[in-house]
Nucleic acid binder design. Structure first.
Lengths: 126, 126
DNA sequence: CAGAATCCAAACCGATACTG
DNA sequence: CAGTATCGGTTTGGATTCTG
């Protein structure tokens, strides 16, 4: 019997890895969900995401814009209005994201049970 | 015409949000992919993930174990062997993860183009 | 082999103040 | 309104050393 090694490998420079780092963060998924129904202005997005700071929102929007997932439109009124809109590319991401979201909803109870069991085991060793 | 607000809202204590924070991190997805074909020992996993440190691997495995996504089996040989195996719960996550992974592979070119365009625009304003 | 412990630097994070 | 700039504080992350 030979040694077991993994058949899949992930290299440090694997392009999908670099991209995953970009999109699989705390806020990106939620921002996209919020923009799914139509373009929104900066503060409207902010109001939809309880707990996000202005700084985090700005940074995440910039990153999404750079990756072509949202588009930023400046409307030259006074004071200026800025609208963020999901792009076609971003829209194509909604499917995968939704699958992940549905998984969390469906499997939450089982995860909670696992956590409780794990924490109980930790307790008893203490 | 009424003000546009978002119809979806994410609350800070939304359970799916808490779970998403746990599973959508840099290494979890890749560890799961590596374990998909069968159980592996600690250092075999490590060899499959170029760039991961022992500390990061330990931490991520603990988290996955706590959430019931992988199982840890200690084999009392000398020196000890420890095998990590994906659980049924973890296996059910592979689908959503794979969808995300496929998306990155398919849309990488478009993302790169968007980045180049964005960075070029930044240059010209400087 | 599979970690735990420690140390230090770097990245992040929220709060605050300021601006066109 | 939609940001930028700045500043501590905390968290993270790597490198190293040690152990059953």
């Amino acid at each position: 019997m030979e040694m077991k090694e993994c058949s899949v490998e992930f290299h440090a420079n694997c392009p999908s890895r670099l991209l995953l780092d970009q999109i699989a963060d705390k806020w990106s998924m939620m921002i996209l969900a919020v923009l799914a129904d139509g373009p929104l202005r900066f503060n409207a997005i902010k109001r939809g995401l309880e707990g996000i700071t202005q700084k985090a929102l700005t940074q995440t929007l910039r990153k999404l814009e750079r990756n072509g997932i949202v588009a930023r439109h400046v409307i030259a009124t006074s004071p200026v209005a800025v609208e963020y809109e999901i792009t076609d590319l971003g829209r194509s991401l909604l499917g995968p994201f939704k699958a992940l979201y549905m998984w969390t909803r469906e499997n939450m109870p089982e995860v909670e049970a696992a956590r409780a069991a794990f924490d109980a085991r930790m307790e008893e060793t203490t």
